[in-house]
Design a protein around this nucleic acid. Sequence first.
DNA 1: TATTCCCCGCCAGGGT
Length: 830
Amino acid sequence: MLEVNRKKRTPLQIVLDYFASKGHKPFRFQRDTWKAYAMGCSGLVHSATGSGKTLAVWLGPVLQWLKENPNPCEWNPKSPPALRVLWITPLRALAADTENALRSPLEGMGLPWRLESRTGDSSQSLKAKQLKKLPTALITTPESLSLLLTHESLIPQLTGLESVIVDEWHELLGSKRGVQVELALARLRKFNPQLRTWGLSATLGNLVQARDSLTGPHPVQNVQIIEGDKKKRMRLDSLIPRKMDRFPWSGHIGTQMVPQVASLIEQVGSTLVFANTRSQTEIWYQHLLKHRPDWAGQIAVHHGSLDTSVRDWVEQGLKNGKLRAVVCTSSLDLGVDFSAVDQVIQVGSPKGSARLLQRAGRSGHQPGAESRLTFVPTNAIELVEMAAAKTAIQNGNLEARLLLNKPLDVLAQHVVTIAIGGGFQSDELLQEVRSTLVFQSLTQEEWQWVLDFVVQGGSSLGAYPEFHRVEKKGDHYQVSIRKIITLHRMNIGTIVSDASMKVKYMKGNTLGTVEESFVSKLKPGDRFLFAGKLVELVLIRDNTAYVKRSKGVPDAVPRWMGGRMPLSSELSQALRFKIQEASEGQFLGSEMKSLQSLFDLQAKWSALPRTNELLIELIKDRSGYQAFLFPFDGRLVHEGLAALLAFRLSRIQKTTFSMACNDHGIVLQSPHEIPIEKGIANGLFTTEGLQEDIQQSLNSTEMAKRQFRHIARIAGLIQSGLPGQRKSTNHIQASSNLFFDVFTEYDPSNLLLDQCRREVLEQQMEVNRLRDSVDRMEQSRMLITRPPKVTPLAFPLLVDKLRERLSSETLGERVARMQSELEKAATESN
DNA sequence: TATTCCCCGCCAGGGT
């Protein structure tokens, strides 16, 4: 290999020879990226799947180095070049894989570069070695990058940095982790103003914002957006239930489809089965195994609550082709190059077009290969969502990642980081911070508030020395107290974890974690599904639930309090169009065709709304009066809407409402007749006074307190303790509430409180979407119907409503009875 | 028998 390299070749020729040795030529977009890099540009490379992007950006700096070091005789692996490239990855698990992917061309070309990674689980000796001298290229996480910035001694090396490459930027964008990266990048650009910044991203709805948050709004060099691998072949289809007329109208587990899914799995070498929740993966795994007992050991389950050792085993099995199928959550959305995966199955609503695309891309993950995804509905109506997602993808309607606006908790953490890493002067750092997109409009007052906060804990914590983290000496801000430095380093980052408890075998192996609240409901002897196994609780000690293997049937499946994934607004919009098409008698594609008789029934008993209409169904039964509304705006918006409508209606007529929501609509229930028509005449759907009405209709203080835990933790008010020996959640929640109360009473102008209220509105209530939704309804024609029976659209809501009151057993009976009554009615009416 | 709610990160100097 070295012999070849000793010949005189141009840098590009060396790279082309490397490609030739792999049997192919570089793609056009890869060469374009190299060219842009050589010109000193920064930019963003995007495509739907990951193939080819890595080499496009990685070989930019490699070519640059070859240009500067044209003579292979002078290459000496014993003295590798100093730090040139930082590669940021959002996942620790990705660091090792990336290292392999990047090392291969270095070795192929015989380059003397030192390539290493550094994450929280790197060995202490490696980390210590790197603090003395960084490698030529370092792969690291956002958190570990911030940690590097706390070491003043590294500044000279970081000044020599030529480029930073941020992988999977779409994952970080729009999150506090992304903001943390933006601030770190501004720091690195301060050290070297010519620093090139490149991002790798999936295709998004807001690529320009994605680029600008990466390079800063006013980059010193030219910036580019490069589209990679355009012609990715993609096959998206749906598994239509064999007996569509017997397929349930409600529910979200969908195990009726297990036999059909099993026969799909059988047809190919390996399959990823995505489900939307962790408990769903456990249930599906069990059902698949029950259906095909011979697959024991050939299928597995993977989600975020499983122990790393379990997950590693599964990922390894996928890579080396030993596993036929893995049932997973979005824990396998990213990362690990599973070129072995032949097909992807999505069980349940995809919730967004970009997510569907991302998941499809997990199969056929090589240039030229076809990505295959099959959607499996868990209830009938979900098929419309798939039809809508396909349309959205076809029209290029992918979700935007909404950017955050000046999160001061992240800024406060960053300021302490910089104060530890050599200190700063106020004006200089302000200018640097303002060079990011997220903080470009930071005011002098806000900045001063952040400084006061880190220097003396703001205006209410002055008496407590532990909140005097940063010292101000003249115009220089710094940290010199050892304990503060260590504590800050241990708690760096913006991810705030939920309350959890380890699940361990008595023999010692850890299976993963569950929520305290789940375990607290179990008695010793209770059996539950976990990590694909049926286990029995033995005892709880030291924040650990000890279990043993069990036989029989589970008493429970853990329910983790995950984030709630509402339908994206792009998908909501596409869904409304699909229903409009149905109202016009258009049933395009297999999904819509399969639903024709269901929609006929909906139209017959009630109506199918056009996009400029709001469907309201009024039904009276033994339990009282019910109003079903169908804005199709996603669950979070509907929750806010339900509270808002109940609040506004009760101003017209004193009564109490109970409500339920799903991604499609809302049901309000009352013992009295619901004055919908009168309400509409009196501005039920007006945007006027919306904000005030929302504030009054929801317990926003309780929501704010919950949100404040995250802010307090990121801003450094609360330390969650050492990794591995965290303080209890109760303890953290209690101190977070204390801060919230103290600030509310003694320091009401505290900007973290402001931020907290904003985050509740924007993130928990999606207030902007809510406003759009009310605005749309205000302009819509009201389609009020009084159906003779519960309609297909209303049925799932009614079931949710019943669920609150009934035990699951009686609920099951009720649902089965309701469904069979409806089927009968449907047959008769056809 | 029926069951909705994702994911991600994290110290290091001085002592044996």
